[in-house]
């Protein structure tokens, strides 16, 4: 490969900034020594480099560093935190709901066992009101 071919290859791979070229090729990067065709390729590469340098991006490094630092410094999660609080897995809320339902069914059984009689009868309601007011004894 001739020196000119290598130069053009370097410009097309790395652009016009000689500092980006492999160290062993940097001695080739003097535009004053370029022939007209190579100079044209160099100018085009330089224009592209200028456009690429316009890609300005946000910087949130310090915020992110702080957040990651807090994450790794947090004490290890307890059993409750690991299993019951982060209800992100679909089966976890189902488990919690199932537990609540079971508890409800169990409690309902206990209430019935206590002898409490549920009624919507009109006469019963009159009797309960009379008992409450002390008009009659239970």
């Amino acid at each position: 490969m001739s020196e000119q071919q290598r130069l053009i290859q370097l410009l097309k791979l790395y652009g016009s900034d000689v500092d980006r070229w492999p160290e062993e090729d940097q001695h080739l990067g003097d535009p004053d020594m370029f022939d007209p065709f190579t100079l044209e390729v160099w100018q085009e590469a330089r224009r592209l480099d200028q456009r690429l340098s316009e890609d300005v991006i946000p910087n949130r490094s310090s915020e992110m560093r702080w957040r990651i630092h807090n994450l790794i410094s947090a004490p290890p999660a307890t059993f409750t935190e690991r299993w019951l609080l982060p209800l992100t897995e679909p089966w976890r809320p189902a488990l919690v709901h199932a537990l609540i339902l079971s508890l409800g069914l169990l409690t309902s059984d206990l209430v019935q066992d206590s002898g409490f009689v549920d009624s919507t009868d009109y006469d019963d309601a009159i009797v309960w009101a009379a008992q409450y007011l002390g008009d009659i004894q239970p």
Partner: peptide
């Protein structure tokens, strides 16, 4: 190297 050269060629077409 091939990907790099193609990327710069495509960018040249779009940006210059």
């Amino acid at each position: 190297e091939s990907l790099l050269a193609r990327a710069r060629r495509n960018l040249t077409k779009r940006l210059l």
